[in-house]
Design a protein around this nucleic acid. Structure first.
Lengths: 389, 389
DNA sequence: GAAATTCGTATTGGACCTTTACGAACCCGT
DNA sequence: ACGGGTTCGTAAAGGTCCAATACGAATTTC
């Protein structure tokens, strides 16, 4: 029982430090060398750790190096996106060993699950394992996962998934345990673990694309809110006029999302006189070329985004906001500077740094891997304990 | 070292369960009866725990009951408010044993410290101890405590306190360690511990008075943000028109505070035609009497508050918001219902419950006690360990 | 007043960790 | 090539602390 604690500590340090010798582990954990030896023996017997070479020291006997056996566990990460279903398979070290991007087909539960299951089969076969060998699966979806009922709310693009128990059907993909998280939340964890948010205590990932969303990481941990709806910035009361007077469809979608998403930018351009505007990318390109109407449309977007981030800053006082999503990434050069300037005028507080996401379309998957690897390490250790005790 | 962990656990359970027997502690902590006995013996020798009577059981030998000795530690809580300096002295059980409210005198550091020191002397003398016997002092102040420099920012009512090292002077009040926290943050902790927020995981206390502010409790812990500015809703971009076009004084004070604080309500009433309006209370009273202009002014306030809480809801997804501050409490009957209605229209998400603070002017002090007691319990245990080891 | 029940503690045994010590392995200089 | 110095790994011993068991003590109920 105390032994288990120590094994956990040793296992964690091995991941943190990479190939590492016994004396180093003793130093890092504060445990004695013999204790490290027995923990290592147990972990080795369980197949979680292996010898990996010798340290070439300056003098004295060479130390044996140990590392975690990456194949001791597998994480299947699935990003159920708008246009693509994206999967990766990662080992316990968090290394992605294979990936597939497949265009989204039918999105009703049965078809989608068939598609994902087939892709998972291909992915696992590539490394010579089966779906059953997956330690943990993590699914990133739009909308809010209601853990009570197992329904997926606020995800109009996934018909049929808002019924009670719908997400329980993910168990068909693999017999292992699985987690379901909001896609933007996972992207935030991805940025926090492998991206620009490394080492930042409190941080948010703001996604502007066909929709809007925000993932919040507080004290290095994902913050979901009391019902999983934290960071639903679509509903920020920021936009044109009074939402009560607007059409109810816009109110349901959310004020901020209506004006600030890709649609909103196009609508702004049209309202400002460019009737033929069709996409946000087109508006950004025209603005870069100096087109006055497009530049005004971008100004409108800057204003909305700055107001939203001002609200976020006033509430959360973050150190860093990473901007992602289609609009956020493509328009970053036109948005970030002006938004930052505007922000400084809006709040007298020191505003957060704003940077563009570096993970791109992989953000959700990478976040799912980050979430999954942490949980999977615990799972394999638990299995070990259960087997030996 | 393992023993210390167990003593901590036992000590914590004693506080949680009140007078409690050894078998009950064994059950609660999962430790064996002999282990409980030795832990209790150590805690008793250190003066932290005492016997308090016998359990009247239905059959069998009566169990000795133990309780924490409340006098094992003292917490001095100081609320440096706008009009009053409010102190309480509480014991380790969190019981307030004496209190003083004193009108604020000169607010420069030297005078204020003299005043607080004198009051602390009187307060401690009442229970027969001295200032030096205080285990921990907690100071609640307006503004933001910069832990790096020791300055107090954003507190225009405390001249001279924004210099580096200013808050270090609190050490003059008592030789014990001390904490400095934002007053609204402490009120939030107070509500979370002794008020309406008991048992609520994520929750906020929104204060509307001469100023505006919010304290955020996430996972039962105060959330300060990366620079201590979390919850500074004064700077929410919610108000009349574009703040860039407003006067810079209002921008510095914050958009939301300018329109939503007591001043803002009076200004709204004046703008709507009641030139002689002088106080928010007057406006609320007139609105209750059916005065049309006053009712419109209250409607304006409702609208602003609802927008602010909509932003907070979209970001944090709270279960409960407790409304406090002079305006919040006095106007609660006129505000809460309409704000809740308005909120439901503004965000499609399930809005938080909104309730009035029950702690009143004591909220800050009570919060300071809550914060202090938790820390003081650790302090007395640390002292015990240091003495015995 | 005796049986039943519960409490408290003494004793025993065991798990586990650290300290100490020593042999093994490796580097370097001569 | 060989020996001193150094570092590594493990064996043995010692100590701490906890749980289990058992038994005496105290209290209630019949």
């Amino acid at each position: 029982m105390l032994r288990v604690m120590n094994e956990r500590a040793v296992f964690g340090e091995i991941f943190r430090l990479g190939p590492v010798s016994r004396p180093e582990l003793a130093q890092a954990t504060g445990l004695s060398k013999p204790t490290i030896s027995v923990a290592l023996a147990n972990l080795g017997r369980a197949g979680l750790v292996r010898e990996v070479g010798l340290r070439a020291g300056p003098a004295g006997r060479s130390a044996l190096l140990y590392e975690a056996r990456p194949e001791a566990g597998w994480v299947l990460a699935v990003d159920i996106g708008r246009a693509f279903v994206r999967l990766v398979l990662a080992n316990l070290a968090g290394t992605v060993v294979s990936r597939i991007d497949d265009p989204s087909g039918s999105r009703n539960p049965a078809d989608l699950l068939d598609q994902v299951t087939g892709l998972a089969d291909r992915l696992t076969a590539e490394v010579g394992i089966g779906r059953a060998d997956v330690t943990l699966a993590v699914f990133g979806t739009p909308g809010i996962h209601d853990k009570e009922t197992g329904a997926l709310h606020l995800a109009p693009n996934l018909p049929g998934w808002d019924l009670p128990g719908a997400v329980d059907r993910f168990s068909a993909v693999s017999p292992s345990p699985f987690l379901v998280e909001n896609d933007v939340d996972l992207a935030a964890v991805g940025e926090a673990t492998y991206g620009l948010g490394r080492g930042v205590a409190h941080f948010a990932y703001v996604s502007i694309g066909t929709g809007t969303g925000m993932g919040i990481v507080i004290d290095g941990k994902l913050y979901r809110g009391s019902r999983g709806c934290a960071g639903e910035i679509s509903y920020l009361p920021i936009g044109e006029g009074d939402p009560l007077q607007d059409d109810p469809a816009a109110a349901r979608r959310g004020m901020f999302e209506t004006v600030a998403s890709a649609d909103g930018i196009v609508a702004a351009a049209q309202r400002l006189g460019w009737a033929g505007a069709t996409s946000a990318k087109e508006v950004f390109d025209a603005a870069r070329a100096g087109e006055p109407v497009a530049r005004r449309a971008v100004e409108v977007e800057v204003n909305h985004l700055a107001h939203a981030l001002a609200a976020v800053t006033a509430v959360l006082d973050l150190e860093l906001i990473v901007l992602g999503g289609g609009v956020g990434v493509q328009g970053a050069d036109l948005l970030i500077g002006p938004v930052q300037d505007r922000l400084r005028h809006l709040v007298a507080l020191q505003p957060p740094r704003i940077e563009v996401s570096t993970l791109g379309a992989d953000a959700v998957r990478i976040g799912a891997v980050a979430v999954g690897v942490t949980a999977a390490r615990d799972l394999v250790l638990d299995r070990t304990v259960a087997a030996s005790g």
